[in-house]
């Protein structure tokens, strides 16, 4: 789809050399899912989130999570107005179309929980009043690798709220050269032109659901899910919700590649980012290697 290609090209101007990750991030948005970026500080997570907000002209807010943060700091708070004698809700940063939750694993589980609940329900209940969040609503959360000190590890049930987890990683040498030679990235982001309006994005999200997935493809997806459950290197297999997410992500991926039907390659492309953060190894080892090995053992076409 041309508009999507253009959007990708725009973001690619500020996040250099990370075409695959950009596509995944875009697919995650089109699939209506939230994105978790796991990286060391300074890898361009914020730039990516900001750039995405720009090209879709989304209302963008950023929250830096800290360990002394309270749920109200995200959701908002009721404030007494002496003039009118009533309580007014002061909306928190969650009332935005794209929320960048920076270093989400620095906050206490209570605060993490408040955000994740809002992500799942797409609404916030304060003082007994339920308010819907804006449409569209995306959360891009970033997380330091858990080996760092002073972090609260997100439990698996909450990781499941994120459709995808990606990492950007260090840039390639030539890309880094380009990066060093270039000007201020902040300016570059601000210069990005919106490509798709928020309403267009909502339509695209709706369109993703219509991308065709035939029985042969569903068979393949099911076999993959089944394989995670049968694999005794893993603590537990993927849930049906994860399966639905995988299919949705694959549809979005197909749409990005201008197809109205899903191919097994689409599933394989989104597979690591959808599956890895949901799976836990039983006794050490790399989940990435395990999910990859599943791709290499599960037959694409049964026979």
């Amino acid at each position: 789809m041309q508009a999507l290609d253009k959007a990708l090209a725009q973001v690619g101007r500020v996040v250099l050399g990370k075409q695959e990750q950009l596509k995944l991030a875009l697919a995650c948005m089109l699939a209506g899912g939230h994105l978790l970026i796991e990286d060391l500080p300074g890898m361009g997570k914020t730039t990516l989130a900001h750039a995405l907000a720009r090209v879709f002209r989304l209302d963008y807010r950023r929250v830096q999570f800290t360990s002394d943060m309270l749920p109200a700091d995200i959701l908002g708070v009721s404030v007494f107005d002496p003039d009118s004698g009533a309580f007014n809700l002061r909306e928190g940063p969650v009332f935005s179309q794209l929320l960048l939750a920076d270093e989400i694993n620095r906050a206490t589980p209570k605060t993490q929980g408040a955000l994740l609940e809002a992500m799942e329900e797409r609404q916030v209940t304060l003082d007994g009043l339920t308010r819907p969040l804006p449409e569209p609503f995306f959360v891009v959360a970033t997380q330091n690798p858990v080996t760092q000190a002073g972090t609260f590890v997100l439990p698996e049930s909450q990781l499941d709220r994120f459709l995808m987890r990606i990492s950007l990683g260090y840039p390639a040498p030539e890309v880094e050269m380009e990066l060093l030679a270039g000007g201020d990235l902040r300016d570059a982001v601000r210069r990005l032109k919106p490509v798709i309006e928020p309403s267009g994005l909502v339509k695209l999200v709706a369109h993703v659901g219509k991308v065709r997935a035939t029985r042969d493809l569903l068979d393949y997806v099911q076999r993959l899910l089944e394989a995670t459950r049968a694999d005794d290197r893993l603590v537990a297999g993927l849930s049906p919700r994860a399966g639905l997410g995988l299919l949705r992500a694959a549809r979005a991926w197909a749409l990005i590649h201008d197809r109205d039907y899903v191919l097994p390659e689409d599933v394989q492309a989104v597979w690591p980012s959808v599956a890895e953060h949901r799976l836990q190894p039983r006794e050490g080892g790399s989940v990435a290697a395990m999910t990859q090995s599943l791709l290499q053992t599960v037959p694409v076409v049964r026979g």
């Binding site: 390659e265 791709l295 290499q296 599960v298 037959p299 694409v300 076409v301 026979g303």
Partner: peptide, 25 residues
């Protein structure tokens, strides 16, 4: 599925073994 398997077997007979995790592409 049978048709796909036939092609895989045919390729194998001609010396090209492809694992069954290969898609058509």
């Amino acid at each position: 599925e049978r048709e796909f398997a036939r092609l895989r077997r045919g390729l194998a007979r001609r010396g090209l073994n492809v694992a069954d995790c290969h898609s058509a592409a």
